[in-house]
């Protein structure tokens, strides 16, 4: 029971951290500050993955998002004009409409979730403690999660795995082509 309290404390702490930083990302007038807070959002989401026992995914999140995508965005920010200070057109038009649309989506999702008990399978237990689930899911150690990932990727999900690698290759070649051809003008 005590461990459950710790779990929930971590959950609410990280959730508040993520939402706070996400709000800064969409409201800050400085593009560079948006980027730094986006990085914190990525780290917080990795923490939420950890709370669900997704150990490998948390590592991937930190490596790819916090390490890779953030650096990519940093390059884009630095290569365009509006690095620091107020970008001319960074903020913002139609704030009222944005709030209305976002609130409508939120209400829609709440309505959906409040009725989604119907869709749950009969075996689902809503009141199981999260820590008990965590312990039951992690077979022995961190290797359990990673091993399960590798086995699933190379057996059941082999075809999507290969397709994704082709997609990555196409994306790399496409990005180089797009970014270079326009420069040789």
């Amino acid at each position: 029971m005590g461990r459950d309290v710790v779990w929930w404390a971590f959950f609410y702490l990280i959730s508040a951290f993520v939402l706070f930083n996400a709000i800064i990302v969409v409201t800050s007038p400085t593009l560079f500050r948006c980027l730094l807070h986006l990085m914190l959002v990525f780290i917080g989401v990795a923490g939420l993955f950890l709370l669900q026992g997704a150990i490998f995914l948390a590592g991937v999140q930190v490596l790819i998002y916090t390490g890779g995508v953030t650096t990519l965005i940093l390059f884009a920010v630095m290569l365009s004009e509006e690095v620091v200070g107020k970008g001319r057109a960074l903020v913002s038009r139609g704030k009222g409409m944005g709030i209305v649309v976002a609130a409508c989506f939120l209400v829609l999702m709440f309505a959906l979730y409040s009725s989604c008990v119907v869709f749950l399978p009969p075996t689902y237990e809503a009141h199981i403690s999260p820590v008990a689930q965590f312990v039951a899911k992690a077979p022995s150690s961190a290797m359990g999660n990673v091993e399960a990932f590798g086995v699933a990727l190379l057996t059941q999900f082999l075809v999507p795995f290969e397709f994704v690698s082709v997609l990555i290759l196409v994306a790399i070649v496409g990005a180089i082509t797009v970014a270079r051809l326009s420069g040789s003008k």
């Binding site: 057109a89 903020v91 038009r93 139609g94 944005g98």
Partner: peptide
């Protein structure tokens, strides 16, 4: 969603 609708950059 809010960010996408309001940002211009």
């Amino acid at each position: 969603i809010y960010g996408i609708l309001t940002r211009r950059n």
